[in-house]
Amino acid sequence: MYDQIKQVGRDLFLQNAVSSHGGNISVRSGDRVLITRRGSMIHNLKDSDIIETGLFKNDSGVVLASTELKVHREIYLQTTALAIVHAHPVNAVALSLEQDEIIPVDSEGSYLLHKVPVVSAEHTVGSKEVMKEVPEYLKNYKIVMLRGHGSFAVGQMLEEAYQWTSSLETSAEIINTVKSSNIELKEYRKSSDKYSEW
C-alpha cells in the first residue's frame, strides 16, 4: 500500500494536479487510516511521509498527519470510501472559479463522471464547513470540487480515486481548450442536456 500511495503522489504531480507540496492521499483499513504527512513532497514520498493514525481516535500520528485529516476522517465516517485523493488540478480549479458544476463534454469524462459538483467554503482548508459539505456530496458523487481550492475523490481502491481525479483534470482541460478556442460544440451525446440533473 505504501508503494501505491507513493506512485499516486508522483503521478498527480506529473499531471499537474498538485504542486510540489500540495494535496494529500489517504487509505482506510478498518479503524485505522494511512495518510500523507503534513508538508510532505507529494511527488517524492518516503515511508516516513505516510502516517498511520486512528479513524475515530487521535493518537501521536496526528502530530504529523496532513492538515486535511479531519476532512478525510469525516468522509470515511459518512461514506463507505476506502481511499481518498485530494488534489489541486489546475484546469478544474480554474473552472470551479466560474461554474457551480463541471460537466465534461468529452466522451470518457461523460461516461465516468457525468457531473462534478462545485461547493464553496470561506475557509477551504480543514475547516468545519468543508467537513460538513464535502462528505455530503460524496455520498452521491465520486468526486467533488471545492471552489478555488481543489478536488476530493473517493474510491473503494486508491486507484479509483486517482482515476476520477485524473479524469476530471483531463475533462476540465478539454473544456478550457474548447472555451479558449471559441469552438462551437457539435453535440454527439443523447441526453447530454440531462447531465446537470445527474
Binding site: 482506510r28 483499513s29 478498518g30 463507505t80 476506502l82 474510491g155 473503494q156 481502491m157 486507484e159 479509483e160
Partner: peptide
Amino acid sequence: GPELLGVPKMIDRFQPKGKSGLLINQQN
C-alpha cells in the same frame, strides 16, 4: 472482480491483509 477480473481494479489475490473493507462494502 478485484482479485481476478480487475473489476473495479486489480488487487493482489494472494495478499491476506487489507481486504476486509473492500469485501464488507461488496457484501453490503
